[in-house]
Design a protein around this nucleic acid. Structure first.
Length: 967
RNA sequence: GCGGGAGUAGCCAAGCCAGGUCAAAGGCGGCAGACUUAAGAUCUGCUCUCGUAGGAGUUCAGGGGUUCAAAGCCCCUCUCCCGCACCA
């Protein structure tokens, strides 16, 4: 158990008891509405999830301390397939699924009996989802997240369904929804589309779209599938596998010749297929078909390499540009003996002329021939080499090839531009269709069946290309803050690429489409505007409003302001005042000021959220800001259950302490980069927290006092007060610009450094030091509160402060105390100490007793100021001229050159005190300190009155660069 | 393939957009010292190379360019990471 657990629990309880984070509208205060996407509750969360929620909480806490009325709510996500899938696997007794859940359950139960008892209940997705929703909310509390839990809901709630129904009715009204064909991986045995998780093999498979070209043949078509439809102009023959089974089939009313297995696939691809006749490929070898572009007759040849289970099992041959075709034809030329049985003479085959139809630099007229010969491919059985040759030619021709003059209206155009036009042209002439295949083979379903491509007719899409939609979304994006700004590119790329997206499915948990209840809205499409639901969720369940009361008119009124509350109250039976309250509460909180999550959601969830908001809400309710933090890795590598290196969220407070984790999570990496969790760095973080607690614990209880100049404090006290306020200023600026790591370093390392330095200064009287320290601690404990709320709360109460530090005022820098001059002077002292040390080190053991410090003459300080004020470019001549016009400096001509040369060399002015007097004074004030640091007696001289300088060192002094003599 | 991003000292990681104040923050590791019976913890200093006077030299994936001046801007090359649609 971590040493922090006891007081962490204590404060979590008190926050809850006093409803510290429950936020209600307060017109007198500015609001800040922050959301982090709700977790998906199909299992326990891990340390990586914690990073995002911790950052979210940091923002919430900081804004709250800044005086904003902060709403930071949370809900849980259960729509979609994963929970349902797991439940089914548990029911089926799948040992892997059972073990996975047991592993998660053991985190929450002591005994194996309890684990099994809970697991036994996981036969209902609702039970699974609500169990994990519950434990995740406990985990969040244990990490100190300042969430208003009154507003929680799940995406499976009936009331939530009503929101989504309204949303999709709105989309329908606007014409943003359409139906169409959609191909996806499909298991014919299960009768379902399959996703990555459903696959045994080929998990990464994507769908490849072939163009099926319908070559006129007898009273129908010979249908050959290709990825290179532009090559129809180079066709010389057709390849048919004489040993394979083909069919004549009626496909959507037309007669097609395709392989038998292709006919079965087409049935799944939303085609009407009726097999008329089955026959062996040999039967049509030797027959003729007609070309698409000029109708001439072409021969069908036998080819063993044609795979009837790939695409249509019919291949048209372009030997000039396809290595497989070239080598197959060459093989027949070399050995035509097998042709006789099909009634094809050797002469006819030898008479086939290879056609060159693509012009490409660096190749002969037949690139396929070049590629085959350069690889020394002997025959059509060298698959690997042929595949390689095909890739080479395909790529080269696609990017650099031009259609030759024999390509009709497409002549002269580049392949990559012309491809789609060729397809369009064939489509117009009813010469082609589409045929889908998985891009890799085999793809096997968990049920053991070979997965095919299924085409869903009537699939519902959200059409992001609907007129006007994208323009509005762009406007929203352009006006929104994206932090870190580097991620904006990713949004822009996504916006460009979004076209149509299926928004409903046939399976899973979710909301049914109101206008087509066979379909269930898929889980990324039902979580885009729900932030609005937080503003009223507690009223809905608090007043036991029934789902059927949440009619279309209800949401129209509460979210859009349409209709009158009176009419809506009549229609829904909801109390009139309650309706008004909800409308007002929505108006108070909305829009969502900041949404924080991980960049992996940019290409879907976050972009959809922007699109859906602009579709539904008026401009003033669009998202204001999206902030992002990257994922977390473990000891330099990916986290994965198989590696066993996943730390569950629930263990973090026990193992490390919530505050330690939080501090690590914000200080180990800036949000924009991956964070590496390294166990050996944890003690350092813990130590930083302990130092903070020790110091504030010791000095925080004293009476804070601010020292003004008139109080005649030590100069180092003025420096200290200045540094503390500078830290407040910079820390706040870092938060504003979302540089969370810099913020964390500033309020831990830097603050600690400044404090330890001050504590070392023995010249400061005890009372003065305690007063100044108490002042600093009062600020420090508040600066740390967003990161380490429990420790800060504990200290705050020990300091006998009113209320909770979580609600205390965020420190603002006291400009009067920021004294750049004293910070500069301090730097001069520190650099002097460094210089002394360096010289002593270089003197290698020679006995040293005393150091003499010589400050530069006053006029040099005047010269530096004069240069700064003149704001001259860094050109020696100009600066010289500038100084020499002043008779005061002219007196020191030679030394002026010395100082100006130095300025040129250093590329500008450097840190120094305001005047020789003040520089000397600071050194005098620090004699004790310098002496203690370097172990030498210290004598400070003024260079206009040097009484002792045996080695004539004083003349090297410059402002800020004290000259030294060590003896 | 398409799209996005990254390569910084022994390691991790800031800096890059707005070039000079950068031998480059912070941390880890290492070395030395203090404290301690000792170890650990903690604290202090050092940690690219050279240097018996505060200085000099060489660095920011590799190559080229722009500039008085480049880790930073431009071009090319190499290497690595992430997303690509029904999966949340």
């Amino acid at each position: 158990m971590s040493e922090f657990a006891k007081y962490e629990k204590k404060w979590q309880k008190r926050w809850k008891k006093d409803k510290v984070f429950e936020a209600d509208p307060d017109p007198r205060r500015k609001k800040f509405f922050l959301t982090v996407p709700y977790p998906y509750t199909n299992g326990a969360l891990h340390i990586g999830h914690g990073r995002t929620y911790t950052v979210g909480d940091l923002i919430a806490r900081w804004r709250r301390m800044q005086g904003y009325n902060v709403l930071f709510p949370m809900a849980s996500h259960m729509t979609g397939t994963p929970i349902l899938g797991m439940v089914e696997r548990i029911k089926a007794g799948d040992p892997k699924a059972i073990e996975q859940y047991k592993r998660d359950l053991r985190l929450y139960f002591e005994t194996e009996e309890e684990v099994n008892a809970q697991l036994a209940k996981f036969v209902d997705p609702w039970v699974t989802a609500s169990f994990f929703a519950k434990v995740i909310s406990q985990d969040f509390d244990a990490l100190g997240y300042s969430i208003d839990w009154r507003r929680k809901f799940t995406t499976g709630d009936k009331t939530y369904n009503k929101l989504i129904e309204w949303q999709y009715q709105k989309f329908m009204e606007k014409g943003y929804i359409r139906q169409g064909n959609y191909p996806l991986l499909y298991c014919p045995n299960c009768g379902n589309p399959v996703g990555e998780d459903d696959l045994l093999q080929g998990e990464t498979a994507k769908i490849k779209e072939f163009t099926a070209i319908k070559w006129p043949f007898e009273d129908g078509y010979l249908v050959a599938a290709t990825l290179r439809p532009e090559t129809i102009f180079g066709v010389t023959n057709m390849w048919i596998n004489p040993k394979a089974t083909y069919v004549w089939a009626k496909v959507d009313g037309e007669k097609w010749v395709i392989s038998k297995s292709a006919a079965e696939k087409l049935r799944l691809q939303a085609k009407e297929v009726e097999v008329i006749e089955e026959f062996s490929g040999a039967k049509i070898v030797g027959k003729k078909f007609r070309a698409i572009h000029d109708d001439h007759e072409i021969l069908i040849l036998p080819a063993g390499f044609v795979d009837p289970t790939n695409a249509t099992g019919v291949v048209y041959s372009v030997p000039g540009h396809a290595p497989f075709d070239y080598i197959a034809l060459r093989d027949l030329w070399d050995n035509p003996s097998g042709l006789a049985e099909y009634g094809i003479s050797a002469e006819v085959v030898r008479g086939i002329e290879i056609i060159s139809m693509i012009d490409i630099k660096g190749y002969s007229e037949f690139p396929a021939k070049d590629a085959v010969e350069s690889r020394d491919i002997k025959n059509q059985h060298e698959d690997g080499k042929l595949e390689d040759a095909t890739q080479e030619i395909y790529k080269a021709e696609f990017y650099e090839g031009l259609m030759k003059e024999n390509c009709g209206q497409f002549s002269g155009r580049s392949i990559k531009d012309v491809k789609d036009d060729v397809i369009a042209w064939m489509k117009e002439n009813n010469s082609c269709d589409v045929f889908y295949e998985p891009d890799i083979r085999p793809v096997i379903c968990k049920c053991g069946t070979d997965v095919q491509v299924g085409v869903f007719a009537g699939q519902w899409f959200l059409d992001y290309l609907s007129p006007g939609w994208k323009d509005k979304a762009w406007k929203a994006l352009n006006e929104m803050s994206i932090v870190p700004e580097t991620f904006r590119n990713l949004f822009e790329a996504t916006f460009d690429w979004l076209t149509q997206r299926p928004c409903a499915r046939k399976r899973g948990i979710g909301t049914r489409l109101p206008f087509d209840p066979d379909w269930i809205i898929e889980s990324l499409s039902d979580s885009t505007i729900y932030m609005a639901f937080y503003t009223i969720a507690h009223h809905i369940h608090g007043n036991k409003i029934k789902p059927e009361q949440l009619k279309y008119e209800f949401f129209e009124y509460v979210f859009i302001g349409k209709g009158t509350p009176k009419k809506v109250a009549e229609k829904t039976g909801i109390d009139l005042d309650l309706l008004k309250t909800m409308r007002n509460e929505f108006k108070y909180w909305y829009p969502n000021d900041q949404r924080h999550t991980a960049p992996s959601h940019i290409s879907n969830h976050l972009s959809f959220a922007i699109f859906h908001h602009v579709a539904i809400f008026p401009e003033k309710y669009w998202l204001k800001m999206i902030s992002l933090n990257e994922h977390l890795i473990m000891e330099g590598g990916k986290m994965s259950k198989s590696k066993g290196n996943v730390i569950p969220l629930v263990e973090i407070p026990k193992k490390y302490g919530a505050d330690v984790y939080r501090l690590y999570a914000v200080s180990a990496a800036e949000p924009g980069s991956l964070m590496d969790w390294r166990e050996k760095d944890v003690p350092t973080v813990k130590n930083r927290l302990r130092q903070f607690m020790d110091i504030v614990g010791k000095y925080g209880k004293k009476e804070p006092k601010v020292y003004a100049k008139k109080d005649k404090p030590k100069t180092v006290t003025l420096w200290f007060q200045s540094r503390v306020n500078t830290i407040v200023k910079q820390a706040t600026e870092f938060l504003e610009s979302f540089k969370l790591r810099d913020f964390a370093i500033m309020v831990t390392s830097e603050m600690n450094r400044v404090i330890s330095h001050y504590l070392k200064r023995s010249e400061v009287p005890k009372q003065e030091m305690e007063g100044a320290m108490a002042y600093a601690c009062d600020i420090w404990v508040r600066l740390m509160a967003p990161i380490t709320p429990h420790a800060s709360e504990e200290l705050w109460s020990k300091m006998k402060r009113e209320g909770y530090v979580s609600l205390a005022k965020w420190p603002t820098p006291n400009k009067k105390l920021i004294d750049i001059e004293s910070e500069r002077s301090h730097d001069v002292v520190e650099s002097t100490i460094r210089d002394i040390r360096e010289i002593v080190r270089l003197m290698k053991g020679k006995k040293t007793t005393q150091v003499h410090l010589y400050v530069a003459p006053e006029w040099m300080f005047d010269a530096m100021r004069s240069i700064r004020e003149a704001n001259l470019p860094l050109i020696v001549g100009n600066i010289m001229k500038h100084l020499m016009t002043n008779p005061e400096f002219r007196k020191h001509g030679k030394e002026v050159k010395f100082i100006v040369d130095r300025i040129a060399k250093e590329n500008g002015l450097w840190v120094h005190s305001r005047s020789a007097r003040s520089e000397r004074q600071v050194l005098l004030d620090s004699v004790k300190h310098i002496s203690a640091e370097v172990g030498l007696d210290v004598v400070v001289h003024a260079s206009d009155n040097v009484t002792y300088d045996p080695q004539n060192k004083a003349r090297f002094a410059l402002p800020g660069r004290v000259s030294l003599f060590i003896e």
